[in-house]
Design a binder for these strands. Sequence first.
DNA 1: ACCTGAACACCGTTCAAGT
DNA 2: ACCTGAACACCGTTCAAGT
Lengths: 269, 269
Amino acid sequence: MTIRHFNKVDQSEMSFFCKNRSTKESKCIIRRVSAKRQQAIADREAELLVIAEQLVATEGFANFTMDKLTNNSSYSKGTIYNHFNSKEDLISALCIKSLKKELCLFKHAATFAGNSREKCLAILYAYQKHAFEDPTLFMCVLSAKTPAVMEKSSPERLERQEELTKEVTQFCDGLFTDALEDGSLVLKPGAELNSLVFAMWAMSFGTNALMVSAGALDTISRLDNRLAQLDNANLLLDGMGWHPLSDQWNYRDTWGRIEQQLFTNNPAT
Amino acid sequence: MTIRHFNKVDQSEMSFFCKNRSTKESKCIIRRVSAKRQQAIADREAELLVIAEQLVATEGFANFTMDKLTNNSSYSKGTIYNHFNSKEDLISALCIKSLKKELCLFKHAATFAGNSREKCLAILYAYQKHAFEDPTLFMCVLSAKTPAVMEKSSPERLERQEELTKEVTQFCDGLFTDALEDGSLVLKPGAELNSLVFAMWAMSFGTNALMVSAGALDTISRLDNRLAQLDNANLLLDGMGWHPLSDQWNYRDTWGRIEQQLFTNNPAT
DNA sequence: ACCTGAACACCGTTCAAGT
DNA sequence: ACCTGAACACCGTTCAAGT
């Protein structure tokens, strides 16, 4: 059921261990010699992030401590602080992991065979799936934008965060420009592509955030979790005038097909 | 410019200090005797919340400590722990303060003279104003729903939270039922009033949350802050079919009138 | 009946000493 | 070159001693 990501850890993420090697001559040699070791370090970092995420998920953000991470891993505090230069930097790392997973799911979703509006729904389905399966990671993206976290994150990670956010945004821009090109979406006078993308982002983020963290509330628990994202999206996309409108097409059927075709027992990526 | 709230502190909020008085006979006498004292306690609690909010605003949530609160106030740790039985309980109290302010602003906004959709926009204007003026309080409502905070909050405050949330929801329900009654909004077949209210909530919350905490991002900073909420709302309300639609009415003009008539130099409430 | 602040257990972070 | 864990400063919470 669950799509696995990052089985193979990307070495390019190990910015931290390389940061003090500034002399150009030695750089290459060291890299070549320690390639295997660097892979080991990257794997350890991934392992630490998995443990951290589990701890945050079970005990909540506030109750998560570096002590607990140390005790639940086989590494010492010093080693952990070699990977993350503060607790906040670790959250930043979780945010990066989250963005990478989102991007991966989005790209998978975009392969859905359908019209442009259906593809957009596929992305939203993927976003929802991410939020429900990994609420902790999903929320990390928000908390990573908090001043307190940003101030204490390493510049390398902040940069990586920005890069990935830009990639996600551009990906969504692409959806909209496709729709503009095939004529299923037409900009109203005075409207901008940017603000449409932002509207969709705000709506889907708001829906997910409220469902994930305020699910206990009356108003929300009365709604059908599986369909709220679809219903909200339909209202918004109708408002944008994105054809076919929801009374001319059975998007509830689309929603089911997205689930079946893309996210069921599929060892994608 | 700023509308002031809670100059007069509501005594009913001091649940904490009264909780151990269960014998009915003595209750009344004690209440009467200590009425003045209870007012003093309520005032102190309000004072502590103001200081706490400032600290959270300047140093961030993670960097806020009970020690700093103690040092910045004229009271001892023990006294502060008489008001809030944990750091999380204090966040819960900030959430309550936030909800009360929202409700107060919403009721003021609902006095706007206009059609039902314009009234809805007035509420959204008020919500945005709250989020931008008091980002800390705004975000408290979300963090208060976090399991970690809920587990350590006093039951009294959790109950008050729920009460207020219900009040806000019912208030929004009212807006929609008014629109249904005067015919400017018609439910599509299969649609529910509940899900429309939720959609508006998700959209406006998402918009505010992204603007407040991710304002540093490229995509967002390019947007006109003042108008994003309006633009997003117009897309959504058009999608609901709430008349007059945005191409039949100048809602940008409405937005300006809301600001001028309701939220400029007005010592309301 | 309420206030106080010393006291305690715990957490984030560092760094001298190891390998 | 990297790892370790003792050490330190700080934070959340309590509670015996005051008024």
